[in-house]
């Protein structure tokens, strides 16, 4: 008598679709799989209208920051993403998706990024293996609901050679030590971003998505009914 699992959010009468930005580089499958496991549907898009209409928006990332920026520009997605974030709507950036939020990156020569979080992306210090590849601890320097149910110093999976240096440290919620204590998680209003890959970090990683999506869709529902959350 098995029945198809019904996503929780459907009970609230809303369509719980998570919008994932496809800019032609990153492998989206693992993100889609993680979201599906949690019972949400995803919509993969490269259209500005979809970005602006999203209930929860995810910018995943693999590859080089300069290419990512060029790909976003080519698809005319930079302005809609910036507007969406400035409107204070739920956004999750992953890896390059975190780095893209900053003023600019030093990767492959200076490239301007989206500039919604002041700061710059720099190369990890020499003296250890680069890329920083593997499981490393995230120290929760500020409490945040995206960490609900996740112990401090939990290991998450990282793959990157550059890191974000944030001007305003009050938005840094997680740090990780790899030659330097770098920012591994950011939160600001309804924006959350991680340098690690939650979709590759086992159960705790899935928990990050679950926490984010619960917050995101609650916020959206609240917004629609005019509630103040």
């Amino acid at each position: 008598m098995a029945m198809a699992p019904v996503p929780d959010i459907q009970k609230d009468g809303a369509t719980s679709v998570v919008t994932i930005i496809d800019y032609g580089a990153g492998n989206l499958r693992s993100v889609v799989n993680a979201i599906a496991r949690l019972g949400y549907q995803s919509k993969i898009t490269n259209q500005a209208d979809d970005v602006l209409a999203a209930q929860a928006l995810i910018l995943p990332g693999v590859g080089a920051a300069g290419d990512t920026m060029a790909n976003l520009k080519q698809r005319q997605l930079t302005k809609p993403i910036i507007q969406y974030i400035w409107d204070g709507r739920p956004f999750l950036g992953i890896c390059i998706g975190l780095q893209m939020l900053l003023t600019g990156t030093e990767e492959g020569g200076w490239h301007d990024c989206l500039n919604v979080i002041p700061g710059k992306v720099k190369r990890l210090p020499d003296g250890q293996k680069i890329p920083h590849m593997g499981w490393n601890q995230v120290k929760q320097v500020l409490p945040h609901p995206v960490f609900n149910g996740i112990p401090d110093e939990t290991n998450f999976y990282f793959v990157h050679s550059y890191y974000a240096e944030i001007d305003d440290e009050s938005s840094v919620i997680g740090i990780t030590d790899y030659g330097t204590n770098f920012c591994s998680a950011i939160a600001q209003g309804n924006l959350v971003a991680t340098q690690f890959h939650p979709e590759r970090s086992g159960e705790h990683g899935l928990r990050i998505y679950d926490n984010f999506l619960k917050l995101a869709l609650k916020e959206e529902l609240g917004r629609k009914t005019g509630e103040v959350i």
Binding site: R29, S30, N33, R37, Y157, R200, S201, E203, L206
Partner: peptide, 8 residues
Amino acid sequence: TADQVFIP
């Protein structure tokens, strides 16, 4: 495998 194993 990728549908159900969330490690690299």
